[in-house]
Amino acid sequence: MKLAGTASLPAPPAEVWSLLTDPSRLSRLLPGCERLEPDGPERYKATVKFGIAAISGKYAGTLEFAHKKPPNSLILKIDGKGLPGFVKGEGRLELRAKAGDTEIAYNGEAQVGGLIASVGQRMLDAAARKIVHQFFEAAKAELASGKGAASEPSSLGQSHARGK
């Protein structure tokens, strides 16, 4: 499964970079993240409970940063499994300043296996997009609260993903 798109975050790249690479803050961005703790350099153990409506599952695994070029690009690797199956993926995030904001271009590929792969095809693409969407929405909220401002109403139109 491929996932690529862009998102715009209302802060300069340096600030976005520090948000994305700070595990304590990153855990707040990951939808359903219950636990994120260091497991070696640039590597974290994570437990995530993700679900859409009645469909939900708990996944345990690792999250890893690679090829960090602050504040321009990094590669994010995830590897997790749970009762509904397993996910292994890698994505490249590129940050670019754009009129005081940061435009993030992401491009990744994930392998999905087990139950979710065999019976969840119809929903997988949309579910992945939803995760990405929630991630960037949470990032916006986090940036807003980091500025000390009251959390602003999120605008859903700003990030868009395309999947294949």
Binding site: V112, G113, A117, V119, R122
Partner: peptide, 14 residues
């Protein structure tokens, strides 16, 4: 089967 060998037509829904 996808590239990873997952049988993605795994049920009669698909």
């Amino acid at each position: 089967y996808d590239e990873q060998g997952q049988l993605i037509t795994g049920e009669l829904m698909d």
